[in-house]
């Protein structure tokens, strides 16, 4: 037991004490509920069984045979593919523009950021009427092209595009804020030397700006992807997952299973799937993409 060892031990204790408050909350409100959910997912706990009982992997087996489960999972994948890259690209473009704009910088930023501030429920109500056939705002525009009567939310193929478009509109401004912050961190000297070398704007973006924004992109990517699984408020207002599950997403299906079917066991099993997916995504992005990032 050397002195050195004791000092190390004291530093450790100190660190633990600092971490303790947030750790308590994490355990209480994240780890413990996750554990409970995992346990409950192995129980039959629905309206047909007065007392929940252990049923092994039955919930998971039934889930794999459930068409709606596969439908919401593929829907969610398309939803993520549709929203994540576009909203990130748009967020970056908006950030570059808002950063450049000399006059009305504040106005441009506020205007771009505005959709993010509006609560999702309000957004859903606004877009519900934008998408209304006949006299909705979109219908008026489409009338010029002779397609005024398009039923955006009542059609199986249209509804997903309608949702994706709305979410991109809502999310892009949020990602812009991160990119704006990222842009502030890039040293001006780099741009000066680039212009000395006579680099074209596109080359500057490709060789300087974009690589140095990689940490931001990485962060935004995770946020965007998890959001595509977490954002379901609009379904409650706009479609209830319809028509025939065409706009249904995993989280809304969990909600339906828990609070409309009262099947707590199945809802827990679905939740476990969701948690695993999100953890996987985070893991891939942290351990895979992390290596390709330049931190300056």
């Amino acid at each position: 037991m050397g002195l050195e060892h004791r000092a190390k031990w004291r530093i450790n204790i100190y660190a633990w004490l600092l971490l303790l408050p947030s750790l308590i909350f994490l355990v209480l409100f994240t780890f413990y509920p996750v554990l409970q959910t995992v346990i409950l997912s192995f129980y039959q706990a629905d309206l047909g069984s007065p007392e929940p009982f252990f049923n092994g992997g039955d919930n998971y087996r039934i889930m794999l045979e459930d068409d709606v489960f596969w439908k919401v999972l593929t829907n969610n994948l398309w939803f993520a593919l549709g929203t994540v890259p576009t909203s990130i690209a748009l967020g970056l473009a908006m950030a570059l523009f808002a950063n450049k704009a000399l006059r009305g910088k504040g106005f441009v930023r506020t205007a771009y950021f505005y959709p993010t501030v509006v609560p999702m429920i309000a957004v859903a109500n606004i877009w519900l009427f934008i998408y209304t056939p006949e006299y909705g705002a979109l219908s008026h525009v489409m009338e010029w092209f002779g397609h005024g009567g398009m039923n955006w939310l009542g059609d199986r193929t249209n509804v997903m595009f309608a949702m994706i478009f709305m979410v991109i509109w809502k999310e892009a401004g949020y990602f812009m804020i991160f990119y704006l912050a990222g842009l502030q961190n890039i040293s001006k000297e780099l741009y000066e030397s680039a212009s000395m070398d006579g680099a074209k704007p596109w080359t500057v973006f490709r060789r300087v700006t974009f690589p140095l924004l990689m940490p931001t992109t990485m962060f935004v990517l995770i946020i965007a992807f998890t959001n595509s699984f977490k954002l379901v408020d609009h379904l409650v207002i706009m479609t209830k997952g319809g028509p025939d599950n065409a706009s249904n997403l995993l989280l809304y299906y969990i909600y339906e299973t828990a609070f409309s079917f009262w099947d707590q066991g199945m809802a827990s099993a679905l939740t476990v799937v969701m948690v695993v997916i999100l953890l996987l995504v985070a893991a891939i992005q942290f351990f895979g993409l992390d290596k390709k990032i330049h931190y300056n």
């Binding site: 994240t30 999702m120 977490k230 379901v232 408020d233 809304y252 969990i254 809802a267």
Partner: peptide, 17 residues
């Protein structure tokens, strides 16, 4: 975006409590 999952967890929690 208060998610339903969080809601679900907190409901479970409060039930337990």
């Amino acid at each position: 975006m208060r998610t339903v999952v969080k809601g679900l967890f907190s409901v479970l929690m409060s039930m337990a409590l």
